[in-house]
């Protein structure tokens, strides 16, 4: 079987296997799997509200998935998407509450630019440390995550704090808010999804059609060969981290400008880490990542409906866990598929 087909088949088969295993678990806890999956589908696509919810959840996941996926392609393991997302959103929120006098046409790109540059700069710290001192980016990005988390929590309980209740920053100006594509009750679906898809296309072009993309990939494949070929390893590591961080910062921007309209204490909600699993399921391919993010987004949205019929939310975490396990250990899936073919 050719490589491209395999790249699509492995995740798809993994999802099917995961659903099969979950069926058994649902039976074991004494519920009807058909009802459960029915609720899952109804909860994620069954109504306008459900669809809006799914899209809202998918948007940041695409972007953090792209962030981590781009890093993987360039040979860096960016665990810091979480921190980059938080920092991007936090700093953008600080500026964006004062952009009231700017027209949206200027304010929106400016806010996005701030979030992306902050994300890029924050990730570049880890890239720089790796290039200069050899400090592994896994360690440094994790450390940077904590700094970002605590800094953000300090800011929203201290200097940026407004009102009582949930720790939060002031609302960003109306002109910085992304246009709403669909509104159902209290739920607003913004144009963030369009931004996410554009980002995926951008990443595809960057990786496959440009010199920069070629160099970054070359360093990822084999830094020694790349250096021998005249490509600066250090420069490209920093660049790869920066682009990855910019995408994570963009995820922060869409959450800020399209969903919450302010920085909340738990704005990221672990989506930076979800990016790792999504990049894995999507096989680091921009199009694959869109589908993977959509899958996880839909599962999570549907899980809330599933709770109504008594299946705990943890069921979708189980599904997600099995998918990731199988995709990561793709040998297992390949072996199963090849065996099947031989038997036939």
């Amino acid at each position: 079987m050719n490589k491209k087909v395999m790249a699509i088949l492995v995740p798809v088969v993994s999802v099917l296997i995961a659903l099969a295993i979950s069926t058994v678990i649902i039976l074991l806890i004494g519920k009807n799997p058909i009802d459960a999956y029915g609720a899952l589908i109804k909860g994620s696509f069954g109504s306008k509200q459900a669809i809006a919810d799914t899209v809202i959840k998918t948007t940041p996941l695409i972007l953090t998935g792209l962030a981590v996926g781009f890093g993987f392609r360039a040979g860096v393991f960016n665990i810091g998407a979480e921190g980059q997302m938080v920092m991007g959103a936090l700093i953008a929120a600080t500026f964006a509450s004062n952009f009231g006098s700017l027209p949206p046409l200027l304010a929106i790109p400016l806010t996005i630019l701030i979030a992306m540059s902050v994300g890029a700069g924050y990730a570049a710290i880890a890239g720089f440390l790796k290039a200069k001192t050899g400090a592994h980016e896994v360690v440094t990005t994790i450390m940077l995550n904590w700094i970002a988390t605590y800094f953000a929590s300090y800011m929203v309980t201290g200097p940026l704090k407004v009102g009582s209740g949930t720790p939060k920053s002031p609302e960003i100006s109306d002109s910085c808010q992304l246009p709403v594509l669909m509104k159902v009750g209290a739920i607003e679906m913004s144009a963030g999804i369009i931004i996410a898809i554009i980002a995926a296309i951008f990443m595809y072009i960057l990786l496959n059609k440009t010199t920069t993309g070629y160099e970054v990939k070359a360093v990822g494949f084999n830094p020694y060969a790349a250096e021998y070929g005249g490509i600066s390893v250090g420069k490209n590591i920093v660049l790869a981290m920066a682009i990855s961080g910019a995408l994570a910062g963009l995820a922060g921007a869409t959450e800020l400008m399209g969903v919450h309209h302010r920085f909340l204490g738990e704005l990221s909600g672990g989506k930076g880490f979800d990016g790792i699993s999504i990049a894995l399921i999507g096989q680091n391919n921009p199009i694959g990542i869109i589908f993977a993010a959509f899958l996880i987004g839909a599962l999570r949205t549907g899980s809330n409906e599933m709770q109504f019929i008594g299946v705990p939310k943890h069921m979708v975490m189980i599904i997600q866990g099995i998918v990731i396990f199988l995709v990561a250990a793709d040998r297992i899936v390949r072996t199963i598929m090849i065996r099947k073919r031989v038997e036939k």
């Binding site: 509200q49 919810d53 959840k57 959450e255 919450h260 738990e266 909600g269 899980s303 809330n304 939310k313």
Partner: peptide, 8 residues
């Protein structure tokens, strides 16, 4: 699951 779930 996350803060974004509260409203929905």
């Amino acid at each position: 699951y996350e803060q974004a779930d509260y409203i929905s």
